[in-house]
């Protein structure tokens, strides 16, 4: 079980790193990190574990989240990461335009087929 979670988080880490690297290429590391900070804040309102995401000028690490998941394996990590990615891409589209963002999203979809779509289902908001 522990190994499975670790592997899963590793995959997400790869995915986030790719996403971060691709966006930092267009936006610069400062804006890419500001974007991560913003989305971490947003998602952490629902999943506090999101605050454990580490990021700096070098990139992104999920080591903190992985350690927390070992203690709390019931955390719906898939939903948490999916929300993070969806919201990240939503803002990214405004910054880069839909064409460039689509390219990044397409690459992510190839890595994790279909998961972006299923993530949308649970999201609703109070205004």
């Amino acid at each position: 079980m522990g190994e499975l979670i670790e592997k899963q988080i590793e995959r997400y880490e790869t995915l986030l790193r790719e996403m971060w690297t691709a966006s930092a290429k267009y936006l610069g590391t400062f804006s890419a990190n500001l974007l991560v900070e913003r989305v971490v804040w947003e998602v952490s309102q629902e999943y506090r574990e999101m605050e454990l995401l580490q990021y700096n000028e070098e990139g992104i690490s999920c080591a903190g989240i992985s350690a927390s998941l070992k203690k709390n394996p019931d955390l719906p990590a898939n939903d948490m990461f999916a929300k993070f990615i969806l919201r990240y891409l939503e803002i990214l589209a405004r910054l880069l335009g839909h064409e460039k963002t689509e390219k990044i999203a397409k690459k992510l979809d190839e890595e994790f087929p279909g998961f972006l779509l299923t993530a949308r289902g649970n999201e609703r908001w109070i205004n």
Partner: peptide, 15 residues
């Protein structure tokens, strides 16, 4: 999509 970024709650947890 949220129209107010000040308050967002997961419907599942709220329920």
């Amino acid at each position: 999509m949220p129209t107010n970024l000040l308050l967002s709650i997961s419907v599942k947890y709220w329920q």
